[in-house]
């Protein structure tokens, strides 16, 4: 059973359809890419999955459970975490306090003891170190560089020990070396059994770390497959580059019908 299933979701704003009968699923323990041109509806999909946007139609399942109407904070308690495309760090708190808030919320009353014995501090330091921003721990979150703030959002989400982590353009603002390290971190997280769904424009990163890729265009999934399949897929090239050469219809059908089970076999 897939960990996440997006079932025929439609989102309309006024007269505009942002997501148009999107269907896809994410298998447990994989890194999955959600790619597509600007305005394809990727972030809106994320908002529907995390509960920040109610869909006009369709349903979302987490681990087989229908969560379409579940409030945002309860989804978090069911193991869902996310980062944002437009940064949403808590600007007036320090970097470490950003993570501490997440940890406090996650641990609830149990966490009070950990504050006393100091293990919370160690855990925060470990999380910041893991994403590589420990040196910024005591700076205010609104004064750190973009890339650092993005990584902070990842650390903050990880503090809640999510099963499913949704990352919205995590690499923008990172330099080449940071992106490389970040890719390795994603693979590590997947190896730990976490599931990652990522909207990302850095195709190098997507092709390197994703086990499977879904391509969204006009609010619908137009292709899915392994990185190798996606890269050579004419439908995808057309969506991204506006190819007007005639790719054979047979090719299209094959790609779209590519079974999901194949894409996760690494």
């Amino acid at each position: 059973m897939p960990l996440l299933r997006v079932d025929d979701v439609v989102v309309q704003f006024g007269g505009v359809t942002a997501v148009n009968h999107a269907n896809f699923q994410v298998e447990e323990g994989t890194v999955t890419g959600l790619i597509g041109p600007n305005g394809a509806g990727k972030t809106t999909c994320f908002n529907v999955i995390t509960g920040l946007q109610a869909p006009t139609a369709g349903r979302v399942f987490l681990d087989g459970k229908d969560i379409t109407r579940m409030p945002v904070h309860r989804r978090a308690r069911h193991g869902m975490g996310r980062t944002f495309q437009r940064l949403e760090a808590f600007g007036s708190l320090t970097v470490e306090d950003n993570v501490r808030v997440a940890l406090d919320v996650h641990n609830g009353f149990r966490g009070l003891l950990r504050d006393v014995d100091g293990s919370a501090d160690l855990e925060i330091a470990a999380l910041l170190d893991r994403v590589g921003i420990l040196e910024y721990a005591e700076e205010r979150a609104d004064s750190v560089p973009t890339g650092t703030a993005r990584l902070l959002e990842v650390a903050r989400a990880l503090a809640c020990d999510p099963r499913l982590l949704l990352l919205d353009e995590p690499s923008s603002g990172l330099d080449e070396a940071e992106t490389k390290a970040f890719g390795s971190l994603l693979l590590e997280l997947a190896a730990e059994g976490r599931t990652i769904l990522m909207v990302e424009h850095d195709m190098d990163l997507v092709l390197r770390v994703c086990h499977g890729i879904h391509v969204l265009d006009f609010g619908s999934i137009i292709a899915e497959g392994t990185p190798a399949e996606i890269r050579t897929n004419p439908v995808v090239q057309k969506a991204y580059l506006g190819y007007s050469d005639d790719s054979s219809a047979a090719d299209l059908d094959e790609t779209i019908a590519a079974p999901v089970s194949e894409e996760v076999a690494l």
């Binding site: 850095d202 092709l207 991204y240």
Partner: peptide, 11 residues
């Protein structure tokens, strides 16, 4: 050069 720039240099 566009394919390289957009779909990644790995192509």
């Amino acid at each position: 050069i566009m394919a390289d720039v957009i779909l990644g240099g790995a192509a």
